[in-house]
Design a protein around this nucleic acid. Structure first.
Lengths: 120, 120
DNA sequence: TTGACATATTCCCTATTGGGAATATGATTC
DNA sequence: GAATCATATTCCCAATAGGGAATATGTCAA
């Protein structure tokens, strides 16, 4: 079986960096397609295709105004992602606590060496 | 240009549902590959391939113990995702507030009709 | 060393991607 | 109606993904 479609769910839809850019751009207020293309320096067909994917998973809403289509990010749709991340909250805190401990311990010695991935 | 590789970053790596299952399974404690395959009912080669992707983006750590390889979720690595989501926090709250308002308003009327989202 | 066990890698396969260019649909104005 | 602006869709293309099956690598036990 090939990879899941980008438009299959939110997890796959946000895999593309351009789509994340678009979501950020459309978060504050609705914008027409042309504005997105201009702001992000993308070709119009490309933007339309990305919007198609985003709309399919509910990450954007559309509203027509004359010949323009105003898109707007629908934050509510990232809830599955938010909830998925929350399942890790406990472990997240544990690890953060350990990182903090080591940081404080090493600040005593003055050695600022970081990023050894070895744990345990 | 084709789609970005699954192993290119965290955003793409978590696109696969099986990999998310694996991450959840490995969050509490390290486990050998065989355990993962058995618990999630996946073929061993499949698990190894998924682990390869996860390790490449830093989402898991490995430790050898005899002939077994113990994998463990590295929550720290989802930080980029966490930070990306935080950029939407403001708007998230705005929308939540609106949703709440409407919920309270409609609870007066008593109609409990909810919208069906298209998530999985 | 040989054999059994645990994991990793390779090969074959089909579906999907996202970009560019061209074209189609839709809406507005003259 | 015709011309024009805004957006959507289609076609062509190279590059994966991920499953299954087979095989390779690595480690321990006798």
């Amino acid at each position: 079986m090939p990879r899941a479609r980008a438009s299959s769910d939110v997890f796959n839809a946000i895999g593309d960096a351009r789509r994340r850019d678009i979501l950020a751009f459309l978060a504050p207020e609705a914008r027409p397609v042309g504005d997105i293309a201009a702001a992000l320096r993308l070709a119009q067909p490309s933007v339309s295709k990305h919007l198609h994917v985003l709309r399919h998973v509910g990450l954007v809403h559309v509203r027509r105004e004359g010949r323009q289509m105003f898109y707007r990010t629908n934050i509510e749709a990232i809830r599955p992602l938010h909830e998925w991340m929350q399942t890790f909250e406990r472990f997240w805190r544990h690890q953060l606590a350990r990182v903090k401990e080591r940081a404080e311990a090493s600040s005593q010695g003055g050695d600022t060496r970081d990023s050894d991935r070895t744990n345990r």
